[in-house]
């Protein structure tokens, strides 16, 4: 029971932030959806905030290298939840055969960060709802709920604005800048799984073990490594995380390619 009251509180704080974002940015706001467990939870929280009819478009930044299960999941729940989906790709880079073979840093930057830049420009977006969490990476632990990116997408992490009491956020912006809003910042990995269980949310089947392997974090097929695991249900995933000391993103190549790579990617505008 106590767990559930805790989840209720996490949910309520996130819903409050989503509604604040919508009040402030209305149709200049989008949700980034990668179909992973976190951003799917974010979409669900938006459904809660707006009683089932999400007025905010949902953006999928498609690198074209995602698992096929991810695309299937996307197409199924776009219909099921009646979402307004915008798919965006960096066509220029793809035409020039951008892939991890040209270096992971370059690939992430071109197919994710640059693609995001293009869609922001196209729709003149002012704010993005992004499902990052503090416990994912020690760099992300230093984020604010409302976090400004400048024209070059840079994150000025040495001079972040004041946020108080989870009620007052920075909404200062200039033309060309955008705000990243992080409604799930205070959730941890295990909270997400407990919430998925409580709310009976669907998740991409890559998260569940087959032949003693499962993905703990999903993205592009070429840059994700499965972990050894026999967790083939949500309950067993929860149990596994509780007893594990392997980090969630340990299978994600871009996090550990080089020292401070995450910091560098993020300072260039990566999520």
């Amino acid at each position: 029971m106590s767990d559930y009251s805790y989840l209720d509180e996490l949910e309520s704080r996130s819903v409050y932030i989503i509604r604040e974002a919508y009040w402030k940015y209305k149709n200049k706001l989008v949700i980034l959806w990668s179909m992973g467990k976190d951003s799917t939870t974010l979409v669900h929280l938006a459904r809660k905030a707006f009683f089932g009819k999400v007025p905010i478009p949902v953006i999928h930044i498609d690198t074209t290298f995602k698992f096929k299960q991810i695309y299937e999941f996307r197409d199924k729940y776009v219909k099921c939840w009646k979402l307004n989906l915008i798919i965006t790709k960096n066509d220029m880079a793809l035409k020039k055969d951008m892939s991890p073979k040209k270096g992971r840093f370059n690939c992430c930057t071109a197919l994710k960060t640059e693609a995001l830049k293009q869609v922001i420009e196209k729709y003149r977006l002012r704010a993005l709802l992004v499902a990052i969490r503090r416990d994912e990476h020690s760099i992300r632990a230093k984020e604010r709920y409302f976090s400004l990116r400048d024209k070059e997408f840079k994150w000025d992490y040495q001079n972040q604005p004041l946020e108080m009491w989870s009620e007052y956020y920075n909404t200062k912006e200039e033309s060309g800048t955008h705000i990243r809003i992080h409604p799930l910042l205070h959730w941890s990995e295990i909270d997400i799984w407990r919430y998925i269980k409580k709310e009976k949310l669907p998740s991409v089947n890559l998260y569940f073990a087959k032949k003693r392997r499962r993905y703990r974090s999903i993205g592009c097929e070429c840059c994700c490594q499965p972990i050894e695991s026999s967790a083939n249900s949500i309950d067993r995933i929860i149990e596994e995380i509780q007893n594990s000391r392997v980090s969630e993103r340990s299978g994600r190549a871009q996090d550990k390619e080089k020292e401070y790579m995450m910091q560098k990617l993020r300072s260039l505008g990566y999520m």
Binding site: S138, S247, S250, K256
Partner: peptide
């Protein structure tokens, strides 16, 4: 025991 092994290695 709240720290992931990967973080400790890093």
């Amino acid at each position: 025991g709240s720290i992931a092994d990967a973080a400790i290695e890093e």
